[in-house]
Every structure is written in C-alpha cells, then in structure tokens.
Write a protein that binds this DNA or RNA. Sequence first.
DNA 1: ACCTGAACACCGTTCAAGT
DNA 2: ACCTGAACACCGTTCAAGT
Lengths: 252, 252
Amino acid sequence: MPASDDAPLSVWLRPEKPPRDRRLTRDRIVGRTVEILDAEGHRGLSMRRVATDLGVTAGSLYWYVTTKDELLELALDAVLGEVLADLRAAPAPGWREGLARLARSTRAMMLRHPWVVSDLTAQPNLGPNALALAEAGLAVLSRAGFAERDLDAALAAVNDQVTGAVAAEITWRTVTARAAARWPGEAGDLLAGLHRDHPRLARRMAAATGVDVDAECDRRFTFALDCLLDGLALRLAGGNGGDTTVGAPRGT
Amino acid sequence: MPASDDAPLSVWLRPEKPPRDRRLTRDRIVGRTVEILDAEGHRGLSMRRVATDLGVTAGSLYWYVTTKDELLELALDAVLGEVLADLRAAPAPGWREGLARLARSTRAMMLRHPWVVSDLTAQPNLGPNALALAEAGLAVLSRAGFAERDLDAALAAVNDQVTGAVAAEITWRTVTARAAARWPGEAGDLLAGLHRDHPRLARRMAAATGVDVDAECDRRFTFALDCLLDGLALRLAGGNGGDTTVGAPRGT
DNA sequence: ACCTGAACACCGTTCAAGT
DNA sequence: ACCTGAACACCGTTCAAGT
C-alpha cells in the first residue's frame, strides 16, 4: 500500500532530470533561430517558438540574450559567416573579380536566407563576421590601388547595390509566385490600366513575365554590378578621385 | 419629479451624435499612419494607435483596409507621391541629370520617412505612384537611346543603389547617434580589437568619425551614384549591351 | 548559474450587435 | 453602410521562485 497519496509511484513515472547536453547555448539558440527564419520568415519567429523548439521556456532565453533584436543581430552575423567562408575558400585573382565574387556570394547567401534583407536595413551589423568581411573588402580595394578616401565609399557602393538588388529580387519573386497561383483575376485590372497609362512599363513587364525568372534576375543583377564595376574602374585608372567627369578607361 | 429613472436628465448630458466630418476615410487613415510612422517608426504603429488617434475603435479600420500590411502598402505609395511631385516640378535636361534627380529626390524622401526602407524591401509596391514613377524613369532612359532590353535593368540599378545606400545611411546615422550618447564605454572594447584585427577598417572608421556626418553621407552617396551613371554611360555610348568589357566613353 | 511559471501590457484580427 | 465592444489567439519582456 502507498506510503502517502502524493508519494512517487515509480521512478519511471517521474521524468529524468534534464541532462547536461540539453542545456542552452547562444550557438544553439542562434542556430535554431536561423532555421526558423529560413523556414517561416520573420512572421514565424517568436521567442516562445524558439524556446519550445529547444524544449525550454521563453523566459530562459533572456539569460543568453537581452532582447529579440539582439537575437536577430546574432542571426545576421551568423549567416554573414557563410559569405566569409566563401571568400576564404577561393582566392581572388584581381580587385574586379574579387568584388564580383563578394557580390555574388552575398547574393547567394541572401537568397538562401531571405530574411537577412530586412535585418540588414534595421540592425547595427557590427558582428565579428561583418567586420571581417568589411576588412577583406577594403583589403581588395586597397591592394588594387584605390585612393584611401575612396576605399569605404567604393566598398559600400558594391554592398549597397547588392542589398538593394536582392531586396527587389526577393519581393519580385514572391509577388510573381503568389500572383501565378491566383491568376488572372486580381492582377487583370492592373495590367489593363497599365497599357493605357504607362505603356513603357507595360511593355517591360510583358517582356519579363514570359522568360525564366532565374535567368532574368541573374541578368539584371550582373548588369547593375558590371555598370558599377566599370564606374569604379574609371576612378582607379584616371586617378581623379572625387571628380565626377569620366576619365579614360584602361580595362580591368 | 423625474418621469423614470433611466430617462435622460438633459440634452447637454447626452453626447451629440458624431458629425459627418468625423467619419473615416482611407486618406485620413493613411495620413495619420504616415504621421505616426514619421514620429515613432514601425514600433510606434499599431492598429489601435491609428484608431484612437482618429477617435475610433481598432476594428473599424478593417472596413477600409483588410490588413495592416495593406495599410503599409498605402503609406508607402503615399510617400512615393512626394518623389513624383518633385520630378514633375522640375523638367530633366538629360538622362544623366534626370536619373540623378530621381536618385536625390528619392533619398531625400527616404530620410524624411526612414520607415519606407523596411517597407520597400517587404511590400509588393504596385501602387499608382510607384507605377508612375517607374514609367517616368523608363521614359528618361528610353529617350536617351538605351537598348529596349536594358531599360528596366538600368532603372532598377539606380533605384536599388539608392535604396541600398539610404538603408545603410539610416542605420549608420542611428548607430552613431546612439553611440555618441553613451560613449565610450560600450564601443571602446570593439574599437580596441578593431585596430588589432582589422587595421584598414579601423583606419577608415577613425577617418569617418571626425568629419561631419551629413557631408560624409553625401559624399558616399554621390560617389556610388556617379560610378553607376558612368557605367551606364559606357553602355549607352559603346552600344555593347550585355558585354562586360569597357568601351570608350563619350561624356554625358 | 540557469531555468520555470506566471504575470503584465500589449498585439492583429474577427464578428456579432448596434445605428 | 459604418462603427462598437468584446473576444480570440497570440506577442516581448520581467521577475520572483525554484534547483
């Protein structure tokens, strides 16, 4: 007969103490955060969600992180590490190809983690990987012989072009994907008015809908990148730092 | 003596029926939304806040708008109208100056309404002002003689450069503003490690902290824009659409 | 040191019911 | 047609209390 009503019936009915390896870590929290963001975007991410995924209460996350924004900062720097790894895996033959690889690698990372775009435009971005990435970019430009005062402006130009382009690419991709699912009812009126009021835009949109989305995105991305790199090449060859007039180019 | 206990005591104690002009409109809702976003950012915006500001319940907004995202779409297009007004106020003398004005006007608008950056990277952006703006940009490039298939890519390049640059500018401005308030404790360690691990980045950051923030932001913005426009000029003059090699420039 | 459980002050959205 | 009031299912964050 039982000793008392609330004495334990058996060890097996009483859950084992949580083992050491089930404990939390910043890495484990950030890792799970990235996975949730990849799978469900910012809408799917909540402190409670991360916590329950890790078998823990929401409040316990605040032992490792003081705010949700901090968690996003950590997640951002984590995926920037992927770009850094790409860069270190392949040595850059010249400044132009070096910047192009940085741009392409960043774009690929952003398409793998579409949520970083909104993070990049709202976070301080001072993590170790972000700093290392900036240093690597500056090194490429510095070795190429760019003027000291143009180093950061040139790197920023490339980075800003990439983030802006990929941001537009992502929204374009999601819009076309959703529009294709429930065509043509909702967008029909818009297209009709478009031909009447904005003929050039209508023509361009018609030309873009037929072709392969991936190919079109690639084309626009490399077009903008090439334009920008050409402009930077002019500044390197002419040596007219700060002047807006175009000097004589000397190739790459 | 009173007729009954729940009969009205006096007209003056009974609130007048709400007048017609206190009723809601999409314009009034969007207008108040923009004001709140300007003053307090995305964090300060909630359906309840907009509603109470307009003297109304939160639920009533859903008669005019089916979701909060829709409200943000409307707010985005509203401020894009400011750029359109700028463009129409001053005629563009040439394609290069036309694009430059578009870029500068867009940047000024974004600095007035910093919240649009996160909107632009997360919203479909198919409003009437957005469409009119795109058509105007395409018209400028088309008249300049750009190849038909390059029209949208070239316009997108400029727009993406602007949004990327202003996004970086805004976060840079807010970080430096907050950092200056509680200097040097928190950022001291970061700067110390910076000199050791990332010398070039440390040198560039040191060069940027002394100078006027506005002037530095202007410099970087025009640097990137000039580079991009130079690259576009090459494509216009050489007629080598799609080729990445640099042709001979012929000025603006 | 690390985590729980419960609470606080919010959210967006829905929907019967009123006028 | 337009708005209220109340509810539903969530949020981020805090903090005593446990171990």
